[in-house]
Amino acid sequence: MLQLVDFVIRNRFFLVFVLLEVLSVWLIVRSNTYWGATYFNTSNYYVAKTLAFSNSAREYTKLDEMNADLANENARLHALVTTLSQRKPVDSPAGYVPDSAFAARFTYTVAKVVDNETNKHNNVLTIDKGTAHGIKPGMGVISATGVVGKVRFCSEQYSVITSILHSQFMVSSKLVRSKEIGYAKWAGKDPNLIDMIDVSKYTKIFRGDSAVTSDQNSVFPPGIMVGRVETVAVHPNQTFYNIVLRLSTDFRNLSYVYVVQNQQLGEQENLKTRTIEVR
């Protein structure tokens, strides 16, 4: 308290000067219409700027929460779109009506990427969901923009995903315009490009055409983006095109993914096993 009194005494002339200046400004603003309006407009401008900065800072601190909410909403929309598309397949013959359980067989679980590789020959990534969240090896993984990979190992809280940027990973893909089906397989070079193999050269391929997951996938829903045709080449002594796709997923900036569960996968796999045994 004594220090405060001492400070006021030592700076009394300066404090009186400041007080008089403030009083003068207040009297001018109160008695003069022009300066009153100028003060009002200027003060409102800076108050608005301050509030905008405060709101931006508050929203920035909530970005993780907002991203998580958007990811959950995307998962719900993915499930809805997949169900609707399976109820009315575009290429289905007249009279075909799919079973409702078959149409709704895919469910989605949101997960956050906690580790990711793009510069190796066989790349994997790690997500923050495991067996405690219903994740199992063999499940497909997609992003908001396209195919990501397949679950390889699981612990209780984490899972390791075999990325599409892996030499042993292939996914059945279909070109939207030409309807041709092949396999997307990474050549181990550029993380933005992937090869599409086993597409017959006796059909027309369009540069820029979309490649999506085909109906022959049991792990991925049909119609999930893989990439777009970047280049098309063919050698005279070959019967297949050399097609390069530009991946739709940017693996260097992957934050959230969706683990896809096919509720009828077990039944499909059991039938395959029985077929192999019979053969």
Rank of each mutant, 00 (worst) to 15 (best):
V5E: 14
F17D: 01
L19K: 11
L20D: 06
L23I: 05
S24E: 04
L27M: 12
Y34E: 08
W35S: 15
T38D: 05
F40M: 07
S43L: 12
Y45K: 13
A48H: 08
K49W: 03
T50D: 06
A52P: 02
N55V: 08
R58I: 15
Y60P: 15
Y60R: 15
D64T: 08
M66D: 14
A68P: 06
A68S: 08
D69I: 15
A71V: 06
N74R: 14
L77G: 09
V81D: 11
T82H: 13
R87C: 08
P89T: 00
D91P: 14
P93C: 01
V97W: 03
D99A: 04
D99I: 00
D99R: 04
S100M: 09
A101H: 03
A101C: 04
A104K: 00
R105Q: 06
R105H: 02
F106I: 00
T107A: 07
V110W: 01
A111G: 07
A111F: 00
V114I: 13
N116E: 04
N116L: 14
K120L: 14
N122D: 14
N123K: 01
V124K: 12
D128G: 15
T131G: 12
T131N: 10
T131V: 07
A132D: 07
A132W: 07
H133P: 12
G134A: 13
G138Q: 07
V141T: 05
I142M: 09
I142L: 05
S143I: 00
G146T: 05
G149Q: 00
Q157H: 08
S159Q: 04
T162F: 04
S163M: 01
I164N: 04
L165G: 00
H166V: 01
H166C: 09
F169Y: 06
V171G: 03
V171F: 04
V176Y: 01
V176C: 11
V176N: 09
R177K: 13
E180T: 02
I181S: 08
I181G: 11
G182S: 05
K185G: 09
G188C: 06
L193S: 12
I194K: 04
D195I: 13
V199M: 02
Y202Q: 11
T203S: 15
K204Q: 14
K204H: 11
K204R: 15
F206N: 09
G208P: 10
D209E: 09
S210D: 13
A211T: 05
V212K: 12
T213R: 04
S214N: 10
N217M: 07
G223H: 02
I224K: 02
M225N: 11
R228S: 14
N237E: 13
Q238G: 11
N242I: 00
I243W: 00
V244E: 06
R246Q: 13
R246M: 10
L247S: 02
D250N: 13
R252E: 11
N253D: 13
N253Q: 11
L254I: 02
S255Y: 02
Q261E: 13
Q261G: 10
N262V: 00
Q264E: 12
E267R: 14
Q268H: 11
E269N: 08
N270K: 15
N270D: 11
L271I: 09
R274K: 15
T275H: 04
T275S: 12
I276Q: 12
E277S: 08
V278L: 13
